[in-house]
């Protein structure tokens, strides 16, 4: 099986497991999949539409800008993410189920394989749901299948990714993230979360200490919505790096918070 096929299989199965509206596009912007939450939002079934080219799916899915007007491909979050290989965010409009127009926060996250090949992008539409529940009381022990699939997908990607559970405890970061941390995963897991955060000395763009609750992954976990910011972080190797992070909460099939995942890019100021 071609390597890129495994990533797409994992991505589709993960998206199917999650309660957040997610769509997947390929490297050319073609629509590859959208999950049931998108189906419910739009009143359209993916299986009825199938895969579609970029010239077709935005109109078919009823996508507009936040004012209901046309939006250029370059301004669509997933397309912008593909072109810049950076996350993209903007307000979008959709003509939803029953003809109701809705404004949503849209986020596009590019996906790059370990060989550097652009695999596609993940698109999320954000509209917090009151039915999304709190995490389970009995955290710990074997992980939920959604977290397992996210971890396996992260293992195939060249984007630094790390994942926390519903309580904010670090669960995993991938090989691509090791240079940012300055160490391997096993070393970090043994450090208590508060001590770890203090060691990293994150600062915001003004150079002020970045409080934990302002850190994107913590904000995504606590507020159950995507979060994005740029900051500096010192890895355990003592090297400071400028980072751009987009984080999303993970709301599982049970509609409970399972954790959050952060996607990192190192900002090269040269």
């Amino acid at each position: 099986m071609a390597q890129s096929q495994v990533e797409i299989i994992l991505l589709k199965q993960l998206a199917s497991c999650l309660a957040m509206p997610m769509l997947v596009v390929g490297a050319e912007g073609e629509l590859v999949f959208f999950n049931e939450a998108v189906e419910s939002l739009l009143g359209l079934r993916f299986d009825d539409l199938g895969e579609m080219g970029l010239d077709e799916w935005p109109a078919t899915l009823g996508m507009t800008d936040e004012d209901g007007g046309q939006v250029s491909d370059a301004d669509r979050p997933v397309v912008a993410a593909l072109e810049t290989r950076r996350p993209a965010h903007r307000r979008v409009g959709v003509h939803g189920a029953g003809g109701v127009r809705r404004e949503l926060a849209g986020t596009g996250i590019p996906l790059v394989g370990k060989d550097g090949q652009l695999l596609g992008a993940l698109g999320l539409f954000w509209e917090p749901q009151s039915s999304w529940g709190a995490p389970r009381d009995d955290l710990g022990g074997p992980h939920e299948v959604e977290l397992i699939l996210m971890r396996r997908l992260a293992g195939y990607l060249a984007i630094p990714i790390f994942m926390v559970d519903a309580s904010g405890r670090l669960l995993y970061f991938n090989e691509a993230a090791e240079p940012l941390w300055g160490c391997g995963l096993e070393e970090v897991l043994s450090i208590a979360p508060a001590e770890l955060y203090a060691t990293l000395e994150p600062t915001d763009e003004e150079g002020s200490p970045l409080k934990l609750d302002a850190h994107p992954i913590e904000a995504a976990r606590a507020r159950r919505e995507p979060a994005h910011s740029c900051f500096s972080m010192r890895g355990l190797d003592g090297v400071s790096r400028n980072i751009e992070e987009t984080a999303i909460p993970l709301i599982g099939q049970s509609r409970r918070l399972l954790g959050a995942v952060g996607f990192f890019w190192e900002i090269d100021e040269s």
Binding site: Q13, E144, G252
Partner: peptide
């Protein structure tokens, strides 16, 4: 009961 690794819920 737990959700397991298989397409669909």
């Amino acid at each position: 009961t737990r959700l397991v690794c298989h397409p669909g819920p």
